[in-house]
């Protein structure tokens, strides 16, 4: 969706707060939001794309005036409601800061000893390069111009712009469909390099470039 989250190239946000190095969770509640979300999504089957879409679906004013973990909280509350983990009345009580009456759901929470396994296990991840790729390295491509109201990882600032394929990253699930339906659609993912002058005009340094990871359906031959 063409929301305020799609920030690449926007003006007006001022200088970068370079001294905001911060601990991971300056406020204790931020750690609780992070951990609750992680534990829930692992236990219930994570749909990170849906999670991102729910954050993007916040009203723009709310998105811009919320901190990072406030946006996580908003997204998590939407997911809890969608999945029916808590009722509307229960969520309204939480919104007012009260603990609602709840019945045990017979669910199985993620046990603490799993955490280390999830974080440590070297996965030896290998890309899936099976099937046919429409594009090869060094092919010229154009990012499609489309304005989907749903989730997409095709930022506005590259749409309609031409770049060059620099790598084929194999088949990866398309976030657009997973965010919408939960279904896994595998599709080729490429890294595409765009010259900065193509994206930003003559003010850019002609040597500079921006690389993005874009799915095959985001691209057309150029």
């Amino acid at each position: 969706m063409d929301g305020v989250h799609d920030m690449g190239g926007m003006h007006g946000f001022g200088s970068v707060p370079v001294n905001d190095q911060g601990r991971p969770f300056p406020e204790p509640w931020e750690g609780r939001v992070f951990a609750t979300n992680l534990a829930l999504t692992v236990a219930l089957g994570a749909n990170l794309d849906r999670f991102r879409f729910l954050a993007e679906s916040m009203p723009p004013v709310a998105y811009l005036s919320s901190s990072y973990y406030e946006r996580w909280l908003a997204s998590m509350l939407s997911a809890v409601a969608e999945q029916g983990l808590l009722s509307g009345d229960q969520l309204a009580a939480i919104d007012a800061g009260h603990v609602p009456e709840v019945e045990p759901a017979g669910a199985e929470a993620l046990p603490p000893e799993i955490v280390q396994v999830l974080v440590d296990a070297p996965t030896g991840y290998q890309r899936d390069l099976g099937g046919k790729a429409a594009f090869q390295s060094r092919d010229r491509v154009r990012a499609r111009t489309r304005h989907s109201a749903g989730h997409t990882r095709l930022p506005r600032y590259v749409r309609g712009r031409c770049g060059e394929i620099i790598s084929d990253n194999g088949n990866q699930h398309l976030p657009d469909t997973r965010a919408e339906t939960g279904d896994i659609t595998m599709q080729r993912l490429y890294t595409v390099r765009f010259m900065a002058t193509e994206l930003w005009g003559e003010q850019a340094n002609p040597r500079d470039s921006v690389c993005l990871d874009l799915w095959e359906s985001y691209l057309e031959p150029a």
Partner: peptide, 20 residues
């Protein structure tokens, strides 16, 4: 709000505070 959410989800059995 975060505390209320965590308590409700814990009582439902969806999360374990030790895991958090």
């Amino acid at each position: 709000r975060v505390k209320a959410l965590e308590t409700a989800l814990t009582r439902r059995g969806y999360i374990n505070p030790d895991t958090l």
